[in-house]
């Protein structure tokens, strides 16, 4: 256990670009490495990802482990575990950080268990305990009703970080890192669970995760038709439309537009919550928003405990008048 040193950040690459979680992982990783007085390193896995190494170094990684192989083009669990296992054997990190993405939530537990340790997923806070130098991992539990702080008995301490919960590292182009090629000895047999197709179901317009304004509807919207009014406001504000779980389960909106613990995590400047109660599970997906505005007919709804501004009433009467006034204000 005493052998394990330093922080390793798995930098996810999507469509050739570094995912947001990479800079966020390096941001918190840098702080943790400084607290420990140890090194911050990174690992890149994919095909053609060598091109991202300089960027990762500029974000603060001293060593950048790169596994660049056509087998790694798309995320597949087994070869990715094999690569991380190889890198972990070489570096013996004390801390391994991944993003809480489709990839990270699949990969983190598997690599942690493979290395004889365990993982804590969806962390919103990470710090080093000054006494024991252990990583204190804070994550929401009970669907966001509570938070738990975990420590790991085993090494490495593996975590995923919640989207936008950590401050991203800023690039410094003068910083150069050491690029280390990783040969994990991959063969086609390395792939057990094989990806055979990817089906995109992305909504048109601004991506929910990138939107500065999110207009989100709940069960009270009552059907797919009602969401067209939300779309109209979202379009006006150059934002995106989302939903809590019930509208998605009812098929009013695609599942990819679900916001919450088991859907997307968003942190826009403005979050307009319409006809949704604000359950803990839903708030887990949007509580990082800068300003939350609520429209709900129930004055006791939990959303009014989370919102900065609110109107109590029937959204069918309020939303058209609100959209009209916003249009007028933006035109002025």
């Amino acid at each position: 256990m005493a052998d394990n040193m330093g922080v390793l950040v798995f930098c996810e690459v999507t469509n050739g670009k570094l995912a947001g979680s990479a800079a966020e992982g390096l941001g918190i990783g840098k702080q943790l490495a400084a607290s420990l007085g140890q090194e911050l390193n990174a690992v890149l896995i994919g095909s053609g990802v060598n091109a991202n190494a300089d960027m990762v170094a500029s974000l603060g990684a001293a060593k950048v482990y790169v596994a660049d192989d056509p087998i790694l083009k798309d995320y597949q669990t087994d070869p990715y575990i094999q690569v991380l296992q190889k890198v972990a054997a070489e570096m013996k990190p004390a801390i391994l950080i991944l993003g809480q993405s489709s990839v990270g939530r699949d990969l983190a537990p598997r690599i942690a268990f493979r290395l004889g340790s365990s993982a804590t997923l969806d962390c919103i806070e990470l710090a080093i305990d000054p006494a024991g130098k252990k990583l204190l991992m804070t994550k929401p539990v009970y669907g966001g009703n509570a938070r738990a702080i975990f420590t790991s008995v085993t090494m490495p301490q593996v975590v995923t970080i919640r989207t936008k919960a950590m401050t991203p590292a800023q690039p410094d182009p003068s910083k150069k890192g050491q690029v280390i090629k990783v040969d994990a000895g991959l063969t086609p047999d390395s792939v057990k669970a094989k990806l055979v197709n990817k089906v995109a179901q992305q909504a048109e317009g601004v991506r929910l995760e990138d939107a500065a304004v999110v207009v989100c509807g709940g069960r009270g919207i009552g059907g797919a038709e009602g969401f067209k009014q939300l779309d109209e406001l979202a379009k006006l504000l150059k934002g995106a439309t989302g939903a809590s779980r019930p509208p998605c389960d009812n098929g009013w909106l695609p599942q990819t537009q679900q916001i919450g613990l088991t859907g997307k995590i968003v942190a826009p400047e403005l979050y307009i919550a319409i006809a949704l109660s604000g359950s803990s599970q839903h708030m887990s997906g949007c509580s990082g928003s800068k300003t939350i505005v609520a429209i709900n007919k129930d004055p006791e709804a939990n959303i009014f405990r989370e919102a900065r501004f609110g109107v109590v009433g029937d959204w069918k009467k309020i939303l058209p008048a609100f959209t009209a006034k916003v249009k007028e204000l933006l035109a002025a």
């Binding site: 365990s118 804590t120 204190l136 539990v141 009703n145 509570a146 938070r147 738990a148 702080i149 975990f150 420590t151 790991s152 008995v153 609520a294 004055p299 009014f304 405990r305 989370e306 919102a307 900065r308 501004f309 609110g310 109107v311 109590v312 009433g313 029937d314 009467k317 309020i318 939303l319 058209p320 008048a321 609100f322 006034k325």
Partner: peptide
Amino acid sequence: AKMAKLFQPVKEGKCEIIGGDTPEEAA
């Protein structure tokens, strides 16, 4: 892994409720 602490986050709950004579006016 060991759970060191389980707690409920404190909510500030400072919502400014905007009223009006009609829903349209409040909007």
